[in-house]
């Protein structure tokens, strides 16, 4: 089954095509954050380069976050539109899974850390299992001190990846000795590979069942009570 992977959850826009042969085409831009302008031409480009028509695609995989709201909005809306127009199923995969997966050969706890802005990061922890990685700590959002406290509590050798790890490198290393490296942004290549593994198990869903993972402050009613004039 041919899979189209769409990745826009961080500053990078990444598109890949692949399936049982692995990734057969991939294109990405990591500067300018022009998700809306770049995405569709990028899809057209990868299809053209490998001579594939969109109607040959059997599944759309998309990064469902956490990450940039503005990016995810573009990626999810486009991915759903393609899936609905082509009448094909979808697989949504977390940005944290996508950052951890390429580190599946590291012999450390893998901790993807994504910049959540305003001094906070999204993070989760993974360990290696045959053929991939498995989450060992639920995704969380919090200040760097929370991440450092969680790393200290686990006190295992850790490999931190992602733009959050790079941005807050000094603060993290001050609190906990670990390795920081690997990918800064998730990519559509690993997205296609992971989606393929799930597609073999038929773990796909309908486009309307795909939801973004925002992982932000709990929802609350806006207090308009002071706004008497609002009718």
């Amino acid at each position: 089954m041919l899979i189209l992977g769409i990745e826009t959850a961080t500053e990078r826009v990444s598109v890949a095509l692949g399936g049982h042969e692995g990734v057969i085409a991939q294109f990405e831009v990591t500067k300018g954050r022009r998700h809306a302008e770049t995405l569709v031409p990028a899809i057209d480009f990868v299809c053209t380069q490998v001579g594939i028509e969109l109607d040959e695609v059997g599944l759309v995989a998309v990064d469902v976050g956490p990450g940039l709201f503005t990016g995810m909005r573009v990626g999810l809306a486009s991915a759903k539109a393609f899936a609905q127009a082509l009448r094909i199923p979808m697989i949504g995969i977390s940005s944290l899974d996508l950052l951890a997966f390429p580190c599946r050969h590291a012999d450390k706890v893998v901790v993807p850390v994504i910049d959540a802005r305003r001094g906070e990061v999204f993070y989760a922890m993974y360990r290696q299992v045959p053929g991939g990685v498995q989450q060992v700590a639920e995704p969380a959002v919090g200040p760097i001190e929370d991440l450092v406290a969680d790393l200290m509590a686990r006190s295992q050798d850790a490999l931190l990846v992602g733009d959050g790890a790079l941005r807050y490198r000094e603060e993290i290393l001050e609190g906990f000795h670990c390795e920081i490296g690997g990918d800064a942004h998730p990519s559509a290549g690993p997205l296609v590979l992971l989606a393929h593994a799930r597609a073999l198990r038929e773990e796909w869903v309908n486009p309307w069942e795909i939801e973004p993972i925002y992982l932000r402050a709990p929802d609350a009613q806006i207090n308009w009570s002071t706004r008497a004039a609002r009718s």
Partner: peptide, 30 residues
């Protein structure tokens, strides 16, 4: 808007961060 998540989904801080100046009417309620 009625709920804080609706405000969050506008991602106003991201718009500001990426070369934007953001004016927010009724922004004082949140």
């Amino acid at each position: 808007l009625e709920r804080t998540t609706e405000v969050a989904e506008l991602a106003l801080a991201e718009l500001a961060e990426f070369g934007g100046i953001v004016l927010i009417e009724w922004g004082d309620v949140v």
